[in-house]
Nucleic acid binder design. Structure first.
Lengths: 136, 136
DNA sequence: GCTTGACTTCAACATAAGTTGAAGGCCGAG
DNA sequence: CTCGGCCTTCAACTTATGTTGAAGTCAAGC
């Protein structure tokens, strides 16, 4: 009987493959795996093997980072994706990411709007509260 | 005749004053001055003195950072503010910041939308190009 | 005019997000 | 079955964004 769990057939891509596909350095691919953005299986010789979703996750992550999401925050969203996700899973993830981006933009807009409409602009009689940036 | 340029009368606030007003640590106020987000005059004894706009700039910067703008990028926008800015100057700065935030959110939305509508999701037959993230 | 608290600079530390290089191991093409 | 290329880990380095602490200076109240 075989002892080791076999690697699912779709996990065929090497670090280099994923890096090339995603347009990042191989070191970044390892970094993202360490930080839970992507998941690998290991060969008998301890090498990583990824499926197609790895490059995709990385590409989404790079765009998400541009709106201020950290790798940690993005990983937290991605862990909700099942193994071999359905379209609806990606749909949900997309909604979460976009909501967050829009919320942050809205916060910026609200703060600037309040500041400008206040007339006082930057006078030091604080009626404007800077929005709570709860990271937690 | 006096040799040294006098500090404009409105520059009365110490590092601590600005830090308290902006809700950040004094070390951060010095950091932001080093990086051009805010400007100080110096007393005869070499101490920084800020005007009201310093705390305001910092508060705006903190919200702008949340949408992915770096200190450098924010400073680049703030340098367009004249000394003792008019409402219209802040209006323009606000517009630039919001435009940038919306552009980044739109890029995220576009990428996710294309990915989801493509049907293939994360299949490796790249018709989806990850949006160009030109920094600079 | 002294004390005390806030100021100064500078260097070291911390965390996030990676990159680079060394030392060695895996694997597929010939 | 060997060779070259990609793989592994690990530690050190980099940049961005700050914080912390040391050593010394300034300024405001008593």
């Amino acid at each position: 009987m075989s002892i080791a769990a076999q690697i699912p057939a779709r996990f065929t891509l090497t670090v280099k493959d994923v890096a090339t596909e995603a347009g990042v350095a191989p070191s970044a691919v390892r970094f993202y795996e360490q930080h839970g953005l992507i998941t690998a299986h290991r060969t008998a010789g301890d090498q990583r093997r990824f499926d197609d979703s790895a490059a995709c996750r990385i590409k989404v992550a790079k765009v998400a980072q541009r709106v201020g999401l950290t790798v940690r925050e993005i990983a937290d969203v991605f862990v909700t994706l099942p193994d071999d996700p359905e379209p609806q899973d990606w749909q949900r993830v997309a909604a979460v990411l976009i909501d967050e981006a829009e919320a942050r933009t809205a916060a910026l807009q609200a703060y600037l709007g309040e500041m400008l409409s206040g007339g006082r602009l930057c006078e030091i009689d604080d009626r404007i509260e800077v929005p709570n940036q709860g990271r937690g």
